[in-house]
């Protein structure tokens, strides 16, 4: 571990339990680096997660952390932020946690544009429970629950967040870690709901079943198939087939929930006098 990041980790809890080559470790380090570089008050920072391999990340991080219920990280985080709006509240969640069992919390937190920085570790699968498909498992892919290929359509979670009302949406990957760090820093600065989709890799429950090779092959896949959103604007559509965009996908700040709520309290108190 880099000495300049050690104070952000519960060093006694490492090494972590993630499988060899799991992308979650890389993304967790990127979050720590972004927090470090953003200069926010560490004593006023809370990290909330649900349940899953990804949701174990806060357990290794040296902050006030909440490891809650499957799908409910955003509900807890909403409570923390509303009770004490001066806190910097982060949410670490998986694709299953955020978009399946927690899908309703996800759209409504985005709709309220509540000031949370959400890092969604997207490994396209339920890693922890052995590889059931999630709403982010691409159509046709193999999972424990789709042995003939996933017959369902998958969400584009970034588009979902934008449609629901998120004011900042970006995508990075376990390979594009510098871009990921910068996206998280932008998300921290945005006063509103910020979603950073971090494409991860699960060699154990997803890669193996989909013949994606080793963890090294999987990270190469992320490298080779990502196109920066700025570059993409200059490319013809056929060059983007089978690729995914990385970078800032949406940034449109507008009224934020805790600020509006405080205004409401002030108004009602004044009227009641």
């Amino acid at each position: 571990m880099r000495p300049d990041l050690q104070h952000l980790f519960r060093m006694e809890k490492l090494p972590h339990i993630w499988c060899p080559g799991c992308g979650h470790g890389i993304i967790t380090r990127a979050i720590a680096e972004a927090i470090n570089e953003s200069g926010i008050d560490l004593d006023k920072t809370v990290i909330v997660s649900g349940i899953g391999c990804s949701s174990r990340a806060p357990g290794y991080m040296n902050f006030d952390t909440l490891h809650t219920l499957h799908g409910r990280a955003l509900a807890f985080a909403t409570g923390v932020k509303l009770a004490n709006p001066e806190l910097n509240v982060f949410v670490i969640t998986g694709d299953g946690d955020a978009t399946a069992i927690g899908g309703n919390h996800f759209i409504h937190a985005a709709r309220r544009n509540i000031d949370l920085t959400v890092i969604l570790f997207n490994n396209n699968i339920y890693g922890m429970t052995g590889g059931q498909y999630s709403p982010l498992t691409p159509t046709g892919k193999m999972a424990a629950t789709s042995p003939y290929g996933n017959p369902e359509n998958n969400f584009d979670v970034a588009a979902l967040a934008i449609a629901a009302g998120a004011s900042f949406v970006a995508r990075g990957t376990a390979f594009h870690d510098k871009l990921l760090v910068n996206s998280i820093k932008e998300g921290i600065k945005n006063k509103g709901f910020s979603l950073i989709e971090a494409l991860s890799m699960c060699p154990t429950s997803y890669g193996r079943r989909n013949k994606m090779g080793s963890a090294a092959d999987m990270i190469k896949h992320l490298k080779d198939n990502a196109v920066n959103v700025v570059t993409a604007q200059k490319l013809p559509p056929e060059k983007l087939e089978g690729k995914f965009l990385i970078g800032t996908l949406h940034y449109k700040p507008y009224r934020e929930f805790t600020e509006e709520y405080d205004k409401l309290i002030a108004r009602v108190q004044k009227e009641g006098k």
């Binding site: 880099r2 090494p15 060899p20 470790g25 890389i26 376990a174 390979f175 990270i219």
Partner: peptide, 11 residues
């Protein structure tokens, strides 16, 4: 190598 090690084993 350092920034892509999932296990923080390289410095």
């Amino acid at each position: 190598c350092e920034s892509h090690c999932p296990d923080y084993a390289i410095f």
